[in-house]
Design a protein around this nucleic acid. Sequence first.
DNA 1: GCGACCCAATGTGTTGACACTTGATCGATG
DNA 2: CATCGATCAAGTGTCAACACATTGGGTCGC
Lengths: 218, 218
Amino acid sequence: MTTLSDTLFTSTLNAIYSGELAPGDEVNEAALAGRFGVSRGPVREAVRRLQGIGLVSREPYMRATVVRLTATQVRELFEMREALEGMACRLAAQRMSDAEQERVAADLDAARAARLAARKSRARAPDFDFHERIIRASGNARITNTLCGDLYHVLRVYRRRSGAVPERSDEAHAEHWQILRALRARDGELAESLMRAHIARAAVKVTERLHALDGRRR
Amino acid sequence: MTTLSDTLFTSTLNAIYSGELAPGDEVNEAALAGRFGVSRGPVREAVRRLQGIGLVSREPYMRATVVRLTATQVRELFEMREALEGMACRLAAQRMSDAEQERVAADLDAARAARLAARKSRARAPDFDFHERIIRASGNARITNTLCGDLYHVLRVYRRRSGAVPERSDEAHAEHWQILRALRARDGELAESLMRAHIARAAVKVTERLHALDGRRR
DNA sequence: GCGACCCAATGTGTTGACACTTGATCGATG
DNA sequence: CATCGATCAAGTGTCAACACATTGGGTCGC
């Protein structure tokens, strides 16, 4: 059984994803309630959950707003991701089954092929999330929840607004393979540093892009 | 202005800390509401927040219970802490001011002296939290919130129940100094590995203790 | 006796109304 | 004309009642 709060949480999340609720916008409980045809109770809970994962900022009696990520917050996000995904990668090196490694390898190749095909046909390739697969293979539910739950949502909103960084996809693919090799060699130490470096590079790209956008916006 | 929800969150947290609400206990919204003389609304929000930080587990229409940490979950907690505190320590090495380093050094010594005195007089030494100081010096609000907010609460409940590990305090003090030296040398790499090793050692101790307790309990 | 089914009792999910806080508008005043 | 203070609307916080799901126990058929 799923409750209204859950539904509203997802719906509101989607509204944020789609840009309907843009960063900086006010989140009005009554308005949301009216829009979804429910009372304010479930809406409140949904908004509180969004606040919990840091997508919405709110203080008592103040209107809630969709969080607007500053350059500092983006940096913090990536630092945290680097720490956690690095650790997840190290753990995955120890705990991932051989079979799962092979599956990820196959999917990684398939995703690349699909991306190349899509590039020609201008279609959008289904995104295969290498990172998520590794994280889930870490065997650490708490880290997985933090990364695939909280951080993922925040990053996704940000990514949506800043756009993807397509020119990095080839590089990224190479780095993914490198990480996978370390995993197969069961070298946790190496896998961790590769993943951290991989994320740090992504952070640099994203930061550059953020600055470019900021420049254009103002 | 502080709301009832906030108050209730803190109160309930304290009830859990004090053992009044022990792991495995059911958390009855109406009962809590009655006890604090408020309606169920604020209680719900407080319980949801506790659920958010992983202290209470709940599914729709099911009674909420105070989370009972299994050995696996303790391991996961420490793995996450190792990753985040390691990163925080690395960042602190770069960002901590010289003045703050000196203050922490002074407090570290003072705390040790107080502990020795307390040992003689059987009093309880005020705990100076070296870890928290380092974390806050990392300059990363997100990591700080996760460690000092969410994880801290969970760990604290656990610590309360398993008891401290006094014989490690001398060791820990030495390790803290070692970390501080790395911070002073602005050696982020070293500071991070020292902190990770420090936490890993604590994890081993806690795990041993947990097994011992488990053995006695059943 | 044993198991499946039904049914209250308990507790959570949801609602609409009311109380309080905040920020802004508007007018009086130095 | 600027500034301060009262007033007011909009929005959040809280409440008490109602609707629904789950659970445990009793009853009936086998």
